[in-house]
Simulated scan of single mutants.
Amino acid sequence: MLDVAPGATYWFLGLAAASLVVVGVAADLPTRPPPDASAAANTVDALAASEYEGTATHPVSANAVRVTARSLSLRSSAGSSHATFAFAPVTPAPPGSALAAVARGAPPGERFESPRALAAAAETARRDARDADWRTASDSVRVRRVNWGEVRVTLVLA
């Protein structure tokens, strides 16, 4: 007959508990990397460095975004990442604003009375974005370089 040592039961229970802990830790690990803020910032920099008008869109898979005149941060369940613009300052376009409409492709003359009004709105948006909070992210970062008269603005809508 096969006898089981009394201490073997405790070893078995301890091994089972340790296995449950390992499985719990493994289940909590992220299954994908955090969103790539650097790639999105490179898209912004490509237009900000140009002297010509242009539009670009960079897809992102993030739940939250924070855009300032000098940086972009993305956050998802896998973590967060942050990137600084090399060609700052850029102008964050608040959703629902006239700047956002221009970032989406509206001619600046339809949303602003003059280049001076566009420049004033851009300056206000850059100032307001200094203490930007996290907000819900869209599925892409949209960038538009606008040249209107003497005004040169790079708009970022995320």
Rank of each mutant, 00 (worst) to 15 (best):
V4I: 11
V4E: 05
A5P: 03
A5D: 10
A5F: 03
P6C: 00
P6T: 00
P6L: 02
G7H: 11
G7Y: 05
A8D: 11
A8N: 02
Y10I: 14
L13E: 07
L13K: 05
G14A: 14
G14T: 08
G14D: 08
L15G: 15
L15I: 13
L15D: 08
A17V: 15
A17S: 13
A18M: 14
S19M: 15
S19N: 13
S19H: 03
L20E: 01
L20Y: 01
L20V: 14
V21N: 01
V21I: 14
V22T: 05
V22G: 03
V22E: 01
V22W: 01
V23M: 07
G24F: 06
G24I: 04
A26Y: 03
A26F: 08
L29S: 07
L29V: 14
L29A: 12
P30K: 00
T31P: 03
R32Q: 02
R32T: 04
P33K: 00
P33E: 01
D36L: 12
A37V: 13
A37K: 10
S38E: 11
S38N: 10
S38G: 12
A39V: 08
A39H: 02
A39D: 02
A40Q: 09
N42K: 11
T43F: 04
T43I: 06
V44A: 11
D45S: 04
A46Q: 09
L47I: 07
L47P: 12
A48N: 10
A48Y: 06
A49M: 10
A49P: 05
S50Y: 00
S50G: 03
E51V: 07
E51M: 07
Y52S: 12
Y52H: 08
E53W: 04
E53R: 14
T55H: 08
T55Q: 09
A56H: 06
T57L: 10
T57K: 06
H58P: 03
H58C: 04
H58Q: 06
H58G: 04
P59V: 01
P59Y: 00
V60E: 05
S61C: 08
S61H: 14
A62L: 06
N63A: 15
N63H: 10
N63R: 15
A64N: 11
A64P: 05
V65E: 00
V65N: 03
R66G: 12
V67N: 06
V67C: 12
T68M: 12
T68D: 04
T68E: 06
A69N: 14
S71N: 09
S71K: 07
S71L: 07
L72T: 08
S73W: 12
R75Y: 05
S76L: 04
S76I: 01
G79W: 02
S81Y: 07
A83I: 06
A83T: 09
